[in-house]
């Protein structure tokens, strides 16, 4: 029996102690927002917070969490930074397939909690453990700057420039 607090709920878990936190969350507690991407600590899709620190749940046995607090993506909106990050992710329309984004957000929240106004280099350091096969990195960077209120510090310039007048279109031939 392992006692852990998960998303504010005390839990008594009957699982073998070496079971990675990832599979406890996903298979035993049906908290599926934490994703399996590599199982080796290489992709960050499984990122959760253990007592506020971002960890890779696929390589962290549940025994390590005994007596501690696990926060997963499902409850990060209860954190004011978490909420801000989620909103910034909406505003920048970051997600493509979305599979990596829970982990990205957990890493970004951890970064912004310790470093409220990160530079691009700090963003690189904090986020380079999170892979995104869809390639949403430019928007992740922008969203972090937006959540931090440091858009002006960003060396990333706006991605898109559309020339056409937004209201004057000719009819499409069907």
């Amino acid at each position: 029996m392992i006692s852990v607090t998960i998303n504010g709920q005390p839990q008594e878990l009957e699982v073998s102690p070496e079971t990675p936190i990832l599979w406890v969350l996903r298979d035993f507690l049906a908290l599926t927002g934490t994703r399996f991407g590599c199982g080796m600590g290489l992709c960050g899709a499984c990122t959760v917070h253990l007592d506020g620190t971002a960890i890779r749940s696929c390589v962290t046995p549940i025994s390590v969490a005994a007596g501690k607090n696990i926060t997963s993506i499902e409850s990060i909106e209860n954190d004011s930074v978490g909420q801000r990050v989620q909103q910034a992710w909406m505003d920048e329309a970051v997600a493509q397939c979305g599979y990596c984004q829970g982990g990205q957000i957990m890493s970004a929240v951890s970064l912004l909690t310790t470093t409220p106004q990160p530079t691009d280099e700090q963003i690189d350091n904090a986020m380079s453990g999170n892979l995104c096969r869809c390639g949403t990195y430019p928007r992740i960077r922008k969203a972090i700057h937006r959540a931090a209120g440091t858009e002006s510090l960003s060396t990333h310039t706006n991605g898109s420039q559309v020339q056409a007048n937004d209201t004057l279109f000719r009819e499409v031939k069907v």
Binding site: N130, Y137, T157, A164, F169, R170
Partner: peptide, 21 residues
């Protein structure tokens, strides 16, 4: 596969708008 620190901070997409026909 690329990580955030390995891709340009600036990727600019320029839409070349064709006529709507």
């Amino acid at each position: 596969i690329p990580r955030i620190n390995q891709v340009p901070r600036t990727i600019r997409v320029h839409a070349v708008n064709s006529d709507l026909d």
